[in-house]
């Protein structure tokens, strides 16, 4: 009870400092509404709290990610959706002040268990970043990087095949097959991002996390990535953070709405965008703030 009170006061504190035009009359509530749980979860997160130093960024989030689904995370800037996403493959470990508590289960395995090795974890849960970040190496070397460090190919022929398959899956093969050995940084922004997707596919992950993968791309490149996400769904589980509600509506099966570090509502995407359960979600998707 005490904890709840403290949380509330902290939340109000944030409200006071943030000059926002958001509706003051809507209650945030402590419970996530909708369907945060799934029958066949690939990943299950329970009671997740994240602190940066003294500041709490995520409050008591419970969420399942089902097998082979695309879940979109939306919400205004600073709502904690990227932070939450980065917890899923422990990318926040590199940030010193960041403290993560709660349970993260990937196929019955606790990924924050002290004995958990993050190397195989990150091979199973891949990540695509906001800004395309190909290594300053050739296109081939970019894709071969992951398989090489995980020892996935013992012979050159196998490696060649992994590279080709990954580039095909990322829809980039036809465009780059004649210049595999030229620099990856020489590609256009959209191609670079697809190269980064191919790079993470190459280590055969089970889950792919995408942190605003299209925010640095033009509409045509964005359309290509969205098409790609629809195809990747066959083989991978995908969690995508996006600022574009249209994008969330186009690509995802379920949508999770975050607000000031709390998970407000999770529902089927159609439901969220046509008939949201929570008033805050409705306020956000209708553009009353954000």
């Amino acid at each position: 009870m005490e904890a709840v009170i403290q949380k509330k006061s902290e939340k109000q504190g944030i409200d006071e400092v943030m000059p926002s035009n958001e509706p003051q009359d809507i209650q945030v509530g402590d419970k996530t509404v909708g369907k945060p749980f799934a029958d066949n979860p690939k990943m299950a997160m329970r009671n997740v709290n994240v602190h940066y130093g003294d500041k709490q960024a995520i409050f008591d989030v419970n969420l399942d990610i089902a097998k082979n689904e695309v879940i979109a995370m939306i919400g205004p800037s600073g709502c904690g959706k990227s932070t939450f996403l980065r917890c899923l493959n422990r990318m926040n470990d590199t940030i010193e002040s960041c403290r993560v508590t709660g349970q993260f289960i990937l196929d019955d395995q606790d990924i924050y268990h002290p004995k958990q090795d993050i190397v195989p974890l990150r091979a199973r849960v891949g990540m695509v970043f906001q800004k395309p970040n190909p290594f300053p190496k050739s296109i081939y070397e970019n894709v071969a990087y992951g398989p090489k460090i995980h020892g996935l190919a013992s012979r050159r022929v196998e490696l060649d095949e992994i590279v080709e398959v990954s580039l095909r899956k990322a829809g980039l093969w036809e465009e780059v097959k004649d210049r595999l050995h030229s620099a990856g940084t020489g590609l256009s922004g959209g191609q670079q991002q697809r190269l980064c997707i191919a790079r993470s596919i190459a280590v055969s992950p089970e889950v792919i996390l995408m942190d605003e993968p299209c925010s640095a791309l033009d509409p045509i490149a964005t359309a290509k990535i969205e098409e790609l996400i629809a195809e990747l769904k066959q083989n991978f589980t995908i969690a995508i953070v996006t600022h574009s509600m249209q994008q969330a509506a186009r690509v995802s099966d379920r949508t999770a709405y975050f607000h000031l570090g709390k998970l407000i509502e999770v529902n089927d995407t159609k439901r969220v965008f046509t008939n949201p359960e929570h008033d805050l979600t409705e306020a956000y998707i209708t553009g009353r703030f954000g």
């Binding site: 190397v119 974890l121 990150r122 091979a123 970043f129 970040n133 290594f135 992951g146 980064c196 993470s200």
Partner: peptide, 22 residues
């Protein structure tokens, strides 16, 4: 840039692999 390191970490490379190869 940190983004290059993140990319490498995200693929499961260790710190020393990231340093050596990226």
């Amino acid at each position: 840039p940190q983004s290059l390191r993140d990319g490498s970490f995200g693929l499961g490379a260790t710190h020393s692999e990231t340093i050596k190869k990226v």
